[in-house]
Design a protein around this nucleic acid. Structure first.
Length: 196
DNA sequence: CGCCTTTGACCAGCGC
DNA sequence: GCGCTGGTCAAAGGCG
């Protein structure tokens, strides 16, 4: 598991998500945000806001928190996280030199009965791994929109089985595909009821 | 038939 | 250097 610094990267991408997140973030709270030790999952809980909402799948989302994980050293691309050239994987060979030079990640912690929150985008699962110190596997998803390299990871905490941590990596380069109960609603709610 | 999930293998980074 | 762990690939199968 990698340790991520807790610097909040407010990219200038035109994403609603990042701009909203930026708005919500209290600059003073950045440092103590998440100490980069993923084993200490309790670190997430300190940031919970008491947002109450539901989505059309019938699951109840009681608490949402978020965090940002920036990459270790590099300056981030200012307009797009989608470095198209990098995505050229040679068939049969894996090219994973990007591990150090990561896009920022935004992790949302939700309390939900279901793992997959309907955020309005279409995702294709491309992997699942057992995670150390966690009895639940972590699932890896990629946005299926052409040219969109956004990924997300979904993981349920073993400490609290109702907590689902969804980690987004990158920014969508296209509009949301579904208009009903999408993720922006969640973020909107978080703006309306700021509790941190 | 096309899209998606599942799953084992592979690879890279990191700590010891 | 080695082993562990996380992240990704890709083949195979399932489902609408």
């Amino acid at each position: 598991m990698d340790n991520y610094p807790t610097i909040f990267q407010s990219s200038s991408a035109s994403s609603h998500h990042s701009s909203l997140l930026k708005t919500m973030m209290d600059p003073n709270s950045q440092s103590g945000f998440l100490e980069g030790d993923n084993k200490q999952n309790n670190g997430f809980l300190g940031l919970m806001s008491s947002v109450e909402l539901g989505n059309n799948q019938g699951n109840i989302v009681n608490n949402i928190s978020l965090l940002s994980q920036a990459n270790t050293s590099s300056n981030l691309p200012s307009t797009s996280f989608d470095s198209g050239g990098e995505s050229e994987m040679k068939p049969g060979k894996k090219l994973k030199g990007e591990r150090k030079n990561r896009k920022p990640k935004y992790a949302f912690q939700t309390r939900s009965q279901v793992d997959i929150l309907d955020d309005g985008y279409r995702w294709r699962k491309y992997g699942q791994k057992a995670v150390k110190n966690n009895k639940f596997p972590r699932s890896y998803y990629r946005c299926t929109h052409q040219g969109c390299n956004v990924k997300k990871q979904v993981q349920r905490l073993s400490k609290d089985e109702e907590i689902v941590v969804t980690t987004y990596e990158g920014t969508h380069s296209h509009p949301i595909e579904k208009s009903t109960d999408n993720f922006e609603h969640i973020l909107t709610q978080m703006q309306i009821y700021p509790s941190f």
